[in-house]
Write a protein that binds this DNA or RNA. Structure first.
Length: 949
RNA sequence: GGGGAUUUAGCUCAGCUGGCUAGAGCGUACGAUUCACAUUCGUAAGGUCACAGGUUCGAGCCCUGUAAUCCCCACCA
């Protein structure tokens, strides 16, 4: 016996994956680039192909961090993507699931730098190329891990085509795009404020910043107004400085805030960052703020300094907030930066990149921002300029990796002008070229693209793709350095036309290269038709809709003129069993590999797909994995039973040797293939008990149910309803196939149908549970090849009348079981037999009914009715129960009559409504009438029963 | 401030174009006991579909409003 009594995933999974991989079945069968052996410029396949060309199905893996372990989100991603891939492979598509590994610029860098520090080194001891080489080795060492984990999850991807985000072709493609953008004038170098992490010494894109609400202090500082500024460092608006004889009283519209303006010759500004006051170049008030109308254009003395700065009018100042006057520090605040742009103000940088003070009076020089803040507050206090403080909660930008507060820092960076990219992308989206799951994410994305700001693509990290820009040296003449594009980024310095250029030290934001993912993975080129681009689907996390999906769409269109994928499926977060976000600090992180080791890969995949729908953050618990494991074991034992029946049959000891004539109409079932029950008539010599004249061991019924199941799974997969597909299979395998069909087939086997239906189920479940289905497939002597490359099952032919008869039998059996449980006493199913009268369905199937109901006997009723009539099924069927027991059951019976009566009333009420009869569809009215008839009959049968008692 | 969701059984979720007598898994209760599977089999209990109006012959589903929860973006001097 090949089948052990339970399925042990660990005995099979590694070997099975190895066998798949060795056989190369995960590679696409349609070549990925056109074949043109005779050099006539035409794809040779099209000339020679007799058969219909295969459909292609392409999907790329969001590249997991090459340096890391897979987490639960990867587990979900692979479960989703691989079931799509396997499903379409079974459906006969040339399927290409392209795996990847991400150099994960910043993430990996953080890990590496931590290592470096642990060894007592710092990044500054090495030059860029050296660091790059070191990290490369570090990652190469780690990468295998991640790939093994993908295999353990069963990802049926084409390993030969694995793309690493720092592969030659990726860099090439990124440079080509960058060059095109440079030539198209979409790349510019700008001094802008960027979010800068003082710890990691790099800038971030807006999207990488994590805003957290924090408690802080808002200090009120007095800035004294001076009548005659001697020194005006800012290049500001001096047009209306002139006038001003007297300040108007600060009253109008000031409300309760007016008292904060302590006198008419000073302004109170509020700030959470007093240390930045050295970078102040103006104080802004709202132009509509009546209180300050007359002082606009005057100057104030900047405390602790000798400078005076102008009072300007700008919308940015909110009259309702604080005193309505706000200090403007363009070099250290994003809003102030914009105010500065509008008013052409100087930018004075007072905090350096390492977070210490520069360009400040001597006593503050070199202090950290925190130290400086303390000192400034102390000094202001001493001068009597600190007018108050209050605690507030405000949101502060943090580094998403180390939690350090990000410092808005003035820096020259490369930017992509996104206006055209976003506009074009919106046009394609509004043209419905991409279908989103869930649907609403399209709207969200368009909304995002409409407000998109220019994209900072420079990172000050060595680990990444070097920005291929070189700056001319010795260009003493101009302020504006001259930059040229060149691919030779392996060189620090190049010469062109006798002029020397130095490479920019920065690397690309990883999203800049990642946005090329569908293009580079499919080897898209301008000149050749590529059957795999656009991708059929992009599956990824909803959390990177903006960072990644948006950019892939913009870049895909920019480079290829086409959207990069036809469908987008976004999954939500996997939360813990209590709906909490998983995090190391909470200690509720679930490692997918632990679950795979414990319950098997299939169990994990089934478990994580159940109850999950697109775009939603949903809970996940080990329990669902256990339930997946149970299904695998169930399927294993189903197969074990069937194989033992097959063995018995081959050894001539099976039950299936009947003398009966099979009465079956194969013509009326809808189907594509005749139901092949495979047995020639002569072999039906049998020992089946004699009352049988027809055989209906659920065979037509199970064919019908399997057909429905296949329909359902196909529909679910087409609409990305994974959980529903799994649910359908679960129910079909367990509740229908095992509980009814196999139980029936224990009496009499149709061996070929058992084989065929088992194959159907195995194939249908394979996309979700690849290992156990393959393990079974390989253990069954009558299957061939790999199930992974089998053909999706065709529909089975069946006789609908026979199927419906079995449905009737199921109802009879169900009612028998229910009634036996409801009767007083225990062990009823052993005590009472069934009696039937004048009913051919029951007569023909008495053994089946007896077996499934587990009653000891079934006999024809002789004499007048006795016992308890089973009223639900409209058959002359009685439970042979003694009168005193029936009497105890009387109350239950009465209650039941009342319940049915209430249902009948409701139906009657519906029919009494003339509008229902006239306006509802005809079939519904008819249905209602039928139901009324049924209920009436049921009541009368129940009443008969009651009278019998 | 802008945007997107969620609210259905104790828990986690389905319920698609309105036809519902609202489903599943887990959990619970009761029963079975070794003949594929105790990772088993059978049966049952459990719901004012967040609330209030409206449209309709008919609303869990559509419309209006309210409440609660969550997420994203922007802002918070």
């Amino acid at each position: 016996m090949k089948f052990a009594s339970s399925y042990e995933p660990n005995l099979y999974e590694t070997d099975i994956y190895g066998a798949w991989e060795a056989a190369g079945i995960f590679n696409p069968t349609t070549p990925t680039v056109p074949i043109d052996d005779d050099g006539d410029g035409i794809d040779d396949r099209e000339e020679t192909a007799d058969e219909e060309p295969e459909n292609t199905y392409s999907i790329v893996m969001p590249p997991p961090n090459a340096n890391g372990n897979l987490h639960i989100g990867h587990g979900l991603t692979i479960a989703l993507e691989d079931s799509l891939t396997r499903y379409h492979r079974l459906k006969g598509n040339s399927t290409w699931y392209i795996p990847g590994a991400d150099h994960a610029g910043f993430e990996t860098w953080v890990v590496y730098e931590r290592n470096l520090e642990a060894q007592g080194h710092t990044r500054f001891e090495f030059d860029r190329n050296e660091l790059y080489a070191r990290v490369w080795d570090f990652v190469a060492e780690q990468r295998g891990n991640m790939e093994l984990q993908l295999r353990a999850l069963g990802a049926s991807c084409s390993w030969d085509d694995l793309t690493f985000t720092l592969d030659e072709n990726v860099i090439d493609r990124v440079y080509t795009t960058f060059e095109k953008m440079w030539n198209d004038g979409m790349i510019y170098r700008g001094e802008k404020l960027v979010n800068f992490c003082p710890k990691h010494q790099t800038a971030f894109a807006d999207i990488e910043v994590e805003h957290k609400d924090e408690k802080g202090t808002l200090w009120d500082i007095e800035y004294k107004i001076v009548e005659n500024p001697e020194d005006t460092p800012s290049r500001s608006t001096s047009a209306d400085v002139a006038n001003t004889e007297r300040l108007s009283p600060v009253t109008t519209g000031a409300k309760e805030r007016s008292e904060k303006v302590v006198s008419l010759d000073s302004l109170i500004v509020s700030t959470t960052r007093p240390e930045t006051l050295f970078g102040d170049v103006a104080v802004a008030v709202n132009p509509d703020d009546e209180r300050y109308k007359d002082i606009i254009g005057k100057h104030v003395k900047l405390p602790l300094t000798d400078r005076t700065i102008p009072i300007i009018a700008d919308e940015h100042a909110d009259p309702e907030y604080g005193t309505g006057a706000v200090k403007i520090t363009p070099a250290h605040d994003f809003d102030d930066f914009e105010v500065g742009e509008r008013h052409n103000l100087e930018r004075i940088q007072v905090i350096s990149e390492d977070g210490t003070m520069i360009n400040v009076p001597e006593q503050y020089l070199g202090l950290t921002t925190t130290e400086c803040r303390k000192q400034v507050l102390k000094d202001l206090e001493a001068e009597g300029l600190l007018k108050g403080e209050k605690k507030i909660v405000h949101s502060v930008a943090h580094c998403y990796k180390c939690g350090t507060v990000l410092e808005p820092t003035l820096k020259e960076q490369w930017f992509v002008d996104v206006e055209k990219l976003a506009k074009t992308a919106i046009a394609h989206l509004e043209n419905n070229e991409i279908k989103f799951h869930p649907d609403n994410k399209k709207k969200v994305l368009i909304n995002y693209l409409k407000n998109l700001k220019d994209w900072n693509i420079s990172r000050q990290i060595p680990w990444g793709i070097a920005i291929p820009m070189f700056r001319q040296v010795n260009d003493e003449a101009s302020d504006e350095p001259e930059w040229i594009f060149d691919r030779r980024t392996n060189l620090k310095e190049i010469e062109k036309g006798g002029v020397k250029y130095i490479r920019d030290e920065d690397t690309f934001d990883t999203w800049f290269s990642s946005s090329h993912w569908p293009i580079v993975c499919t080897n898209w080129t301008k000149d050749n038709f590529n059957p795999y681009y656009p991708l059929n689907v992009m599956e990824t996390g909803a959390d990177i809709l903006f960072a990644w999906v948006a950019r892939m769409i913009m870049m895909g269109i920019y480079v290829t003129g086409e959207v990069p994928f036809k469908d987008v499926y976004l999954h939500g977060l996997v939360l813990d069993a209590h709906g909490q976000k998983m995090s190391k600090s909470k200690g509720n992180v679930i490692n997918p590999m632990d679950l795979v080791a414990k319950y098997g890969s299939d169990a994990f995949r089934l478990g994580i797909l159940r109850g999950r729908s697109a775009g939603m953050n949903q809970a996940f618990s080990e329990q669902s994995v256990i339930s997946g494991r149970n299904l695998c074991n169930k399927l294993w034992n189903i197969s074990r039973l069937i194989q033992s029946l097959v063995d018995d049959d081959e050894n001539g000891v099976g039950l299936g040797n009947g003398t009966f004539e099979i009465v079956r109409d194969n013509g009326s079932g809808m189907s594509e293939e005749p139901r092949d029950d495979g047995r020639d008539e002569a072999s039906r010599e049998s020992t089946i008990p004699s009352p049988y004249t027809t055989l209906n061991m659920g065979e037509d019924w199970i064919c019908r149910e399997l057909n429905d199941c296949l329909d359902q799974v196909e529909a679910d997969m087409t609409s990305y309803r994974f959980a529903e597909a799994v649910d359908t299979l679960y129910q079909t395998i367990w509740d229908k196939y095992a509980d009814w069909f196999l139980e029936s087939q224990k009496i009499y086997q149709n061996i070929n149908l058992l084989k065929k239906t088992l194959k159907t189920l195995l194939i249908a479940l394979h996309p979700f549970a690849p290992f156990v289905t393959e393990a079974i497939w390989q253990n069954l002597p009558w299957t061939e090849g790999f199930i992974a490359t089998a053909k999706w099952p065709v529909k089975l032919k069946y006789d609908p009348i026979s199927a419906e008869e079995f449905e009737n039998i199921r109802n009879i059996v169900s009612e028998t079981r229910t009634t036996l449980q409801a009767l007083p006493g225990t062990n009823n199913s052993k005590k009472y037999g069934l009696l039937f009268d004048n009913d051919s369905l029951i007569e023909d199937n008495q053994l089946l009914i007896k077996t499934l109901s587990r009653v000891p006997t079934i006999n024809t009723l002789k004499g007048s009715p006795r016992g308890l009539r089973l009223a639900l099924a409209n058959h002359e069927l009685y439970l042979d129960v003694p009168e005193e027991v029936v009497k105890e059951y009387k109350d239950a019976l009465t209650e039941r009559i009342l319940a049915v009566g209430r249902e009948l009333d409701a139906l009657n009420l519906r029919m009494d409504n003339p509008n229902y009869v006239s306006r509802a569809p005809e079939h519904l009215v008819k249905e209602t009438q039928d139901q009324i008839e049924e209920k009436k009959q049921l009541i009368s049968r129940l009443k008969q029963q009651l009278e019998l008692i």
